[in-house]
Each structure stands twice: as C-alpha cells, then as structure tokens.
Amino acid sequence: MATLTMKTIRLFFALLLLLAAGHAQAQIGIKAGINGAVLDGQNIDMDTRYKTTYHAGIFVRLPVIGPLSVQPEVLYSLQGSQFRSALANYDTKLHYLNVPVLARVKVGPVFAEAGPQFGVLLGAREDGTLRISAADGYGPVDRSADSNYKKTDFALAAGAGIEVGNLILGARYTAGLNNINDVDDLNGANDPRLKNRVIQGYVGIRFGSE
C-alpha cells in the first residue's frame, strides 16, 4: 500500500510539472495549511464533529487573459471526522491526494478562486473507543478502515485571499458531492451517506515574477 501511495503521489507531481513546462508563462508554487474537516450527510446515527488536520502540496498557475488564470494543484490532505455516540468515541482519519483545478481571478492583491476537485483515497484509519458489550464495557480501537470508504471523491472548492509579492494567504471551503461510505446496512434502506466537508486556511509561496 505504501509503495502504491508513493507511486501515485509521484505520478501526479510529475504531471503537474510537465504541465508547467509546457506553458511558457506558467508559475509554480508551494502551499500548506490547516484543515477543519468533518464527514456530514444523512442517516448517520452518531454525532460528527470537525477535527483539525493539515494539507500541503504544490500548484501551477497558468495565465489565461488579464486577471484570469487557471490553477491546478496536487495536495496531500488529511481529512475525516470525529464520531461521538453512547456506544462510540473515535476519530476517522482519511488520507487523500486531492487535485483541484481552479479558475482564479486576481484584482490588486485580492483573489477569488473556484472549481472542481478530484480526490483519491490513499488510506483510512479509525482510532478511539467502542462499546464491546454490556459485560466488557468499552475497549480501544485502532484499525485500518480502507474498506469502509470509497476510493474516489468529487468536490467543489471555492475560496479567496490576498497575494502580496510572492506570499499568498488564503482560505477555502470544499464540499464533497458524492457519498464516500462503502459499508452497506443489512436492510439496504438506511445506509449512512457521508460527504467530505473541509475548511482550509493556508500559506503559499509563488516562485518567479508575474
């Protein structure tokens, strides 16, 4: 799994660099920041709460015309949620490789951005406590949860920020469009529908001049 994950990350990074090399005016940058991530949806029999995680990656900016540019990115993003109920108290950690492709408009130091995002699940884990039985009470859980979640995620992203010189400060919200739950209820009627919701704040550095 680790080997496959590294190969996937290297492939996406290589494709992004090739895209930059093929565009004479392309600019490359790096970015990193914090996530406020939660799994929201329907038919969830537990409370889901935001958890603080992080993301990091690179971007390529491709000028189109005037203040408009297109910005593909490759980001590693740790997402998931806290799950709380009378029977469970655990965190789900979802490791994603996300590829947003954003339309970006910059006027002075202020910019706004929006577009689709495609995500590949690299791995999933659950850790915390679960109620084992009335006699045994609660026990710890720390296990792989790869089979509980679908391998792809589609989302819409939108954000804004300021760019002064080569320094970028921004905030973004991404809303998952598809149900990522991959565990079916026994009767098939009330399956939980889980969707990624992520609030991001980030710092970036752009290399080269505009």
Rank of each mutant, 00 (worst) to 15 (best):
G176H: 00
V110F: 15
Y90K: 09
E73F: 03
Y173V: 14
V101L: 14
T129R: 15
Y54P: 00
I180L: 05
T3P: 05
T129D: 12
Q82N: 11
D184A: 15
K7S: 15
I205H: 01
E163Y: 00
G204A: 10
N179P: 01
Y76S: 01
I168P: 03
V38D: 13
S144V: 14
T152A: 13
I132S: 10
Y50D: 08
G161A: 09
H55N: 09
G137Q: 07
A2R: 07
G159W: 00
G188R: 04
G159S: 02
L156H: 02
A103L: 11
F118T: 02
G208L: 02
I34K: 03
A112M: 14
T129S: 12
F12R: 11
L62P: 01
I44N: 05
D45P: 05
A14M: 10
A114I: 13
K106V: 12
V141W: 02
G33C: 07
T8C: 02
L186H: 07
L16E: 12
H95R: 10
L17D: 04
A21R: 02
Y54S: 09
A103T: 07
I180G: 04
S133H: 07
G188A: 06
Y50R: 11
G80S: 07
M6I: 15
D142H: 08
K7T: 15
T5Q: 09
P67D: 11
I44M: 09
A26T: 08
N43S: 14
D142L: 07
A189E: 11
L19H: 03
S77H: 03
P116R: 01
R49L: 09
L75S: 08
D47E: 14
G201L: 04
S77V: 02
G137T: 13
G36P: 00
I162V: 15
A37Q: 02
Y76N: 00
Q82D: 13
V141G: 06
Y173T: 05
Q71P: 00
G41W: 03
N148R: 13
S144H: 08
T53S: 06
G123Q: 05
A135M: 13
A14V: 12
N178W: 00
A56S: 12
I199W: 07
N43D: 14
Q79E: 15
E113T: 08
I162F: 06
D146M: 04
L122C: 11
M6Y: 11
K106D: 14
D127H: 12
D127A: 08
L130N: 11
S209Q: 07
L62T: 03
S81L: 04
G66F: 06
G137K: 06
S144L: 12
D153P: 00
A134P: 10
N148Y: 07
G159H: 00
G165A: 10
E126C: 06
N178H: 04
S85T: 13
V70M: 11
S81R: 06
S147Y: 08
D182W: 00
G80D: 07
G165T: 10
G208E: 05
L194V: 02
V60S: 14
P192L: 07
D40E: 12
R61Q: 14
A114M: 11
D136S: 13
L186G: 05
R143E: 15
G119R: 02
N35L: 00
I34T: 13
A134E: 15
G108A: 08
L68W: 04
D47Q: 14
L18R: 01
K31D: 13
A135C: 10
I30Q: 02
I44R: 04
I9W: 03
N148M: 10
F207H: 02
G137D: 09
